[in-house]
Amino acid sequence: MIDALFSDMERLCGAGKVDKETSFYFSVDEVKKTVFLSPEGCRVVDGKATETADCVCKTSAAFLDRIWNQGYRPGVKDFLAGEIKSNNPAALQTLLAACGKA
């Protein structure tokens, strides 16, 4: 399920969706992925492919599926409850928008 979500992300976030490159490191249960979103498109790499990602996100596969496939948008209570953790929630919104999910 989670690999399909990241493949979908790579496919949907095509060229010309953003003005600058942003890196995202996802820790989703036991799965680790790095996403590079740039003006040229989106590239997903297994594991941690950068020392300092612009955005780090830690959540469960079920919660990420809810966001990606069901249109749920986390609120402050989700972050406070630890359902999702991120150092840059605004960048996550940018990623969703670039993929047509916002």
Rank of each mutant, 00 (worst) to 15 (best):
D54E: 09
L80H: 07
A53N: 08
Q70P: 02
V44I: 13
D78V: 04
F36T: 11
F36P: 14
F24H: 13
V31P: 02
T52Y: 10
N87K: 07
N87S: 05
G100T: 06
K58C: 08
K77I: 10
V28F: 02
K58P: 03
C13P: 08
C55V: 13
K32S: 12
L96W: 00
V56A: 10
A15K: 14
D19A: 14
C55R: 10
T59E: 03
P89T: 05
R11T: 15
R73G: 00
V44S: 03
N88I: 01
V18A: 11
K85M: 10
S27N: 09
A91E: 04
D46R: 08
G14D: 13
A102L: 08
E30F: 15
G82I: 08
K32L: 11
P39M: 02
F79A: 05
P39T: 01
T34F: 07
E40W: 03
R73P: 00
G100M: 03
K85P: 01
A90V: 14
E21T: 15
G82K: 03
V56G: 08
G71N: 02
E30G: 07
M9G: 12
E10L: 10
L96Y: 01
T94A: 09
K20M: 09
S27H: 05
L92T: 06
V76A: 15
G47I: 03
A90E: 06
K58L: 05
D19S: 14
E30D: 15
D46I: 05
A91L: 12
